[in-house]
């Protein structure tokens, strides 16, 4: 549950915050969100990664669809990547890694400051 919630909220943070803020502010926000929700370690990484990666992918798809611009293909050729499609994937992968690491960091941070609750239940 927490994983799904975190993925969804990360995605929303990227959608709304990224419009006004650069990627590194978004990373901090995803970290904070992960610390707040505290999914599992893997959940933090995957949730943050999917949240940011999928939104970035979706945004590139959306921009390509509404503009039908040749720019992605031109940029692909310029950067030696072939087509705009590979740039789209590169953008998604970059988003995934940045979001994933941020999510993971958030979880780690929460784990660090919070005492293991196991004692309470075992007691």
């Amino acid at each position: 549950m927490k994983f799904l919630l975190f993925t969804l909220l990360s995605a929303l943070v990227v959608v709304f915050l990224n419009i006004v803020a650069p990627y590194w502010v978004v990373m901090i926000a995803v970290t904070a969100l992960a610390a707040l929700i505290r999914p599992t370690v893997w959940g933090g990484f995957l949730g943050g990664g999917l949240g940011m990666g999928l939104v970035w992918l979706g945004q590139t798809l959306y921009i390509s669809a509404v503009t039908s611009s040749t720019l992605p293909d031109k940029m692909g050729a310029l950067m030696g990547l072939g087509s705009g499609l590979s740039l789209m994937l590169l953008t998604a992968v970059l988003g995934f890694i940045l979001g994933g690491c941020s999510g993971l960091l958030g979880v780690m941070f929460r784990n660090l400051i919070q005492k293991k609750p196991t004692d309470v239940y075992l007691g």
Binding site: N18, I19, P22, Y23, W56, Q59, T60, I63, L71, P72, M75, L87, L90, T91, L94
Partner: peptide
């Protein structure tokens, strides 16, 4: 590459 500020 940032779709909100980059070349996209």
């Amino acid at each position: 590459l940032d779709p909100n500020h980059g070349f996209w």
